[in-house]
Design a protein around this nucleic acid. Structure first.
Lengths: 92, 92
DNA sequence: ACAATATTTAGACAATTGTATAAATGTCTA
DNA sequence: TAGACATTTATACAATTGTCTAAATATTGT
């Protein structure tokens, strides 16, 4: 379980980005316009998320499309379940 | 899902503390001696964990005993399952 | 090749954070 | 009440982080 993963999740803007990507894949611009901060700042957050392997990218012409890496989320869930879970959730 | 929760989890020393508490409840001193940093620094980390409601305390004479608050961990798991789970875990 | 659009990278700066030492608080026992 | 032990709180400081503006890179269409 990598340190960058938890640091990436620590910022509320980044968690919001992840939730946006839950609905559907989006380009960097589509993501950035959802926030009141500069595009460059959102781009920085996207870089953090990508470094933590929480998202993956694909270029589409001039756009870059972001999508969730659900595999990593399953690892997070497993981390909590195995270490701290304490038999709690039969069905999410 | 509170912001303090994720910020609390972002530090590796704090995650290590949580894992120690998985094994058994421990006093502040027992926890602190596991780390190469000053007792006061560990105490600060314990305060962060407590503020995030990840641990609870009980005074025992001159000692203060810490224990995991497993309820909050179940909330974390639920957070990830519902938002990002993507039908992945039949049995963790 | 040039201009327009999309996105990232570089550099600077204020805010937050992790750590340390020293002082304060709380508890026990003589 | 004094002294020892356990823990926290106060204060300071260096490191990290989130944000900004400006510049750089990449792609498309003319």
């Amino acid at each position: 379980m990598d340190d960058s993963l938890f640091r990436a999740l620590a910022d509320p803007t980044r968690r919001k980005i992840l939730e946006l990507l839950t609905e559907k894949d989006r380009t960097a611009g589509e993501i950035a316009e959802q926030f009141p901060i500069a595009f460059a700042s959102v781009s920085h957050h996207l870089g953090v998320l990508k470094a933590a392997d929480l998202v993956a990218t694909e270029r589409e012409g001039q756009f870059i499309r972001y999508r969730l890496n659900t595999t990593v989320f399953q690892e997070v869930v497993r981390y909590f379940m195995t270490r701290f879970g304490g038999e709690g959730e039969k069905h999410a």
